[in-house]
Design a protein around this nucleic acid. Structure first.
Lengths: 368, 368
DNA sequence: GACCGGACGTGTTACGTATAACCTTCGGCG
DNA sequence: CGCCGAAGGTTATACGTAACACGTCCGGTC
């Protein structure tokens, strides 16, 4: 990593000066550098590759580096990949990039990858790519490793032939396909959340549960149930919800108008569902948080855009991507993979408050 | 969104059946296919490359295809790139991926690229990558072309050496660096928007203008000014706003509490600023849309998550990315580039209504 | 004085593909 | 009949890099 921290910016300057009027058509190769430095191409490869300890004299090594800088030499990645059998490219499999959460995961992962000289290509789920060719058709041939979210696990079936190093994000640690698994401490976040709600006095809580088969949502459902187990008088119900604002709205409507006593809190599986739930609450003439408290998950930008701002569990999305990429890099180095679990944090905002349980004044038609 | 009903399963099935128990260590090359089909490696290349019209008999061609399928042959992209001098990889330069708009642009661009057998790598702006190495250092060596948003124009300076085919998104058509420019009909969208507001009776309008130097925001500012030029009694003011919910809140607060008559409409440069503006309006004890109308831009998911839902100008983000990539593909084919301008659409929702101080028209509390 | 091993390099090769150049067969035509 | 061009292939080569195998010098050692 510290081997080549040669300054790039002055290099660009001299490169511009070094090519006065010549057409950029002819790419400069390691052989050109060799010629300029008066050494063989092999020496250039050794020097620039950093492994010249006792093979090239310091003087010539410096000459090589100078010539490379002067000519603006960039190694041809295709040739290198062909020779080495490695592409320094990894695949990130996410359910959809248009969700802010995974866009941030990508950002973190790409940053760490860049530090290691790796690139990241995306497989943003079948619905993102649509009916086009399966990226694995060509991609699998030129990948060094894969990071995959548990929410896109089904896409991984296409990869089961190629036994690439694999790091799973937020998935069952018992999954043996993965070389390592990086998790978020979802269960703890849920416990904080339910603790917050019960401390406020909430007992009738409906979990607006994402109807996506995924490890992370299974954990959330289990943690919600378990953490309310010991609370006297707690009445937990479960309302499935698809992902999206509209789906959250419909699910919340069903939850609030269904049989039995009305819940005083809606615990939503993500902020987007929660935003939809807020709309449903208000359309029924109820107030947030006085009549119904609503909580989200993820702490997206959305969480502070809606009103009132959402109490939610902040997931460290970028750090998540960073940790996943770091784990993959250690696996690629042949070292044993660490599999950290990242902490999450409850963020308390205006969408939660003690319930106004007075049984008499349920509906206030006018409202604002 | 229904999850993926697409079926990559049959292809995966045959692939799984073709490799019974062998270790996947040894990659299958075109020579292996040649051996299996009883032809030379060159014939395999011809057949699989599709240019065997009068060079290989149909029978042998079919045998080659069968053998390739049977063995699960995947061409080595590194070798192909080295031989051809092209990488079938293009770069998409965007200001930040965590914004939904550009995530959708990427999705569309990646889809079209995949149809052409191209991959897309991202350069999500310096602030996304952070202080890590400049991706162009290595990337520029292996790119066939570039698509760049005008919002990330400064990042392009790093590319000025490499004279790669370049398609600009939503930027000044006079910019000569670009081989083609794909635009959105922003000006028309703005005219629809101002027409909508003035038809409702609004005259005192403040433009919450993104303080980002970018072609698209310059066009918006100009179009707002020009389209209100001929409206009698129109009073346009301009309030700079950084990007983000908080920035929108502050800018709107300044606009509403500043000197002079209070504006009855806030025309925001994007939905996120508009969401912040909504919060500012309510914090001042004013109502949307009765006291102040608010409009956004882009039609992100956010636009229907806030309440009231935002009147906004829908930008066809994915189509935008698709059109950009299509233009780049034609440039790469050596054909003259078409440079379309995509239509945009005004979406009228609950955040706009006639101003209450307009004579005659009164308040309609219900909403729809 | 023969031998050894480390420092300092260079020649050569292979990675897998696409394609130019070449070679053979064969039917048709002057 | 002799020759030509097309069909149907094959052989050979180059792309740019990394690294193995091989030299050569030279100071020290027995």
């Amino acid at each position: 990593m510290s081997s080549n921290e040669a300054a790039p910016s002055p290099g660009a300057h001299t490169a511009g000066a070094a090519r006065p009027g010549g057409p950029a058509a002819a790419r400069v190769t390691s052989r050109d550098v060799a010629r300029a430095a008066g050494v063989s191409q092999a020496a250039v490869s050794l020097v620039l590759g950093g492994k010249w300890r006792g093979r090239v004299s310091p003087g010539k090594a410096e000459a090589v580096r100078a010539a490379a800088r002067e000519l603006g030499y960039r190694p041809n990645l295709a040739a290198r990949s062909l020779r080495m059998g490695r592409t320094r490219t990894v695949l990130l499999v996410v359910p959809a990039l248009t969700t802010e959460f995974f866009a941030r995961v990508y950002t973190g992962a790409a940053r760490v990858a860049a530090e290691h000289g790796f690139g990241v290509v995306l497989y943003p789920s079948p619905e993102g790519i649509g009916p086009a060719r399966d990226p694995f058709d060509s991609a699998a041939a030129t990948l060094d490793g894969v990071i995959a979210s548990s929410m896109a696990a089904e896409a991984l079936t296409a990869l089961r032939d190629a036994d690439l190093p694999l790091v799973m994000l937020d998935s069952d640690p018992a999954d043996d396909r993965a070389g390592a698994t990086v998790n978020l401490d979802i269960a703890h976040g849920v416990r904080q959340l339910t603790g917050h709600l019960t401390a406020l006095g909430h007992r009738r809580i409906t979990h607006l549960a994402a109807d996506v088969r995924s490890w992370t949502f299974e954990v959330r459902a289990r943690a919600v149930a378990e953490s309310l187990q010991g609370v006297p008088g707690a009445l937990l119900r479960r309302q499935p919800a698809a992902l999206g604002v509209d789906a959250g709205l419909h699910a919340a409507h069903a939850a609030l108008t269904g049989p039995g006593p009305r819940p005083t809190a809606l615990l939503c599986d993500d902020d987007i569902i929660a935003a939809g739930a807020c709309k449903a609450v208000r359309r029924l003439g109820l107030r947030i948080p006085e009549d119904v408290s609503v909580t989200g998950f993820d702490d997206l930008a959305l969480a502070v855009a809606v009103e009132p701002e959402l109490t939610t569990v902040r997931l460290p999305a970028e750090e998540f991507g960073e940790a996943g990429m770091r784990a993959l890099m250690t696996v690629l180095d042949g070292r044993p993979a660490n599999a950290p679990t990242l902490p999450v944090e409850l963020v308390t905002r205006g969408s939660t408050a003690p319930p106004q349980d007075a049984p008499g004044h349920a509906t206030r038609p006018g409202g604002q």
